[in-house]
Amino acid sequence: MRDATLVTTLGRDPEQNDGIVNPPIQRASTILFPTMDALLAARPGPGVVNYGRYGTPTTFALEEAVATLEGAGGAVTVGSGKGAIVATLLALLQAGDHVLIADNVYQPTRHTADHLLKRMGVAVDYFDPLQPEQVEAGMRPETRIVYLESPGSLTFEVTDVKRVAEIAHARGALVVFDNTWATPLFFKPYEHGVDVTVHAATKYLGGHSDLMMGIVTSTPEIHPRLRQGVQDLGMSTSPEDCWLVLRALRTLEVRLQRHMESGIRIARWLQERPEVARVLHPALPEDPGHALWKRDFKGASGLFGLVLKPASRDAVAAMLNGMKLFGMGWSWGGYESLLIPTFPQTTRSATEWQTEGPCLRIHVGLEAIEDLIADLEAGFARLGAAA
């Protein structure tokens, strides 16, 4: 079945729930067993109700749905996107290991690597996401993971995931991929050699800016290690939040189509603005990553970047402070539009980020595009008046 059908059917079974279309929210801590043998035989695992921290049928329904949608061998939920990153790295790494990380990753990923991993004796190096040969040059006998995010969530470079996976696998390393931007609908990671994906389900999978969740998917061989790692860390997720993400899945395909269409229209409009030096959006033919994006991705979400021509901090503040529809907030992927300043030059170590002027990150929501453009036009007028 196609994705539009899968998102409406996965994770529900009316025949098992008295004909009810949506699965119920099942909350639990203690699970009772009918006999001592059943109690002692029960082991936590996918679909096994053993103790509330390991999940309930609501949790398992979401995990099965996301794993199927992404083409994975299994999935496990945790309390946040950052939790998904931490759980994955701690489950798959130990003291003495080495990890290679793309230089454009989400800042909390870099923070985890530079602090938590190094403290536990894991060596960390970064590489240019546009130079797969740097992965080959950086591999060591003890390299266990190559970690990718494509497009990067601030600067939106597109990495040749297939080539990186070939290099990593030839040396016995796993490829971990952050698929939050594209979601399982717009990028199929396991068709490109990825072994593990992390998602901030807080973003598009949740879609309504009202929950925190992370999801990790993997190949069948790796899934038991990841689930055990989550259990070792004592991570769990709320059945209510799992139910909300299940409900949000039903509209994921139509939401993403709207985010993509509106995002591309606004990106093209921004290209014509005299205040804008360049737009960072891989779906635009002029973008350096467009050919790879077109080869590997099925679509684009509503998140992209732009570089302004030289402008003062006060002028940028005047623009952003007066926005009516574009809010300022650190998340994205909800129905509402967002616009924030970004500073990629402060989070690089293997590459140098140079721009003509200030950088902004925009998330195009589900509002009427004409109203969003009017809001941006007024913002540019304030930017010019304050220059």
Rank of each mutant, 00 (worst) to 15 (best):
P46H: 12
I85T: 00
P282E: 06
R247E: 11
Q228N: 03
Y335R: 15
F33I: 06
D3N: 14
L92D: 03
N22M: 14
Q354M: 07
R247W: 09
L90Q: 04
R361S: 11
G19Q: 06
R273Q: 13
Q231A: 14
A168N: 00
V158M: 07
E367C: 11
I369V: 13
V161L: 05
S238I: 05
E15I: 13
A182C: 04
R348Y: 02
D375Q: 11
A165M: 07
S150K: 12
G263S: 08
V49K: 05
A386T: 04
G52K: 04
D114I: 08
K294A: 15
Y335E: 15
V146C: 06
R273E: 08
L360M: 05
A61Q: 01
G357T: 06
I369Y: 06
D114V: 08
S150A: 10
Q257K: 13
E240K: 11
F127L: 04
G81Q: 01
Y106M: 10
L306N: 01
A317R: 07
Q131N: 12
I145G: 08
A283W: 08
A84G: 05
T217H: 03
G121H: 07
A385P: 06
L303E: 02
L339D: 02
S80E: 00
M1C: 11
F343Q: 15
H111T: 13
E352Q: 12
E149A: 12
A91N: 02
A165W: 03
V122F: 04
L6N: 00
T219R: 11
D114T: 02
G329S: 14
V158S: 00
R110Q: 13
L32K: 04
G81H: 03
V66F: 04
K82W: 12
A378R: 15
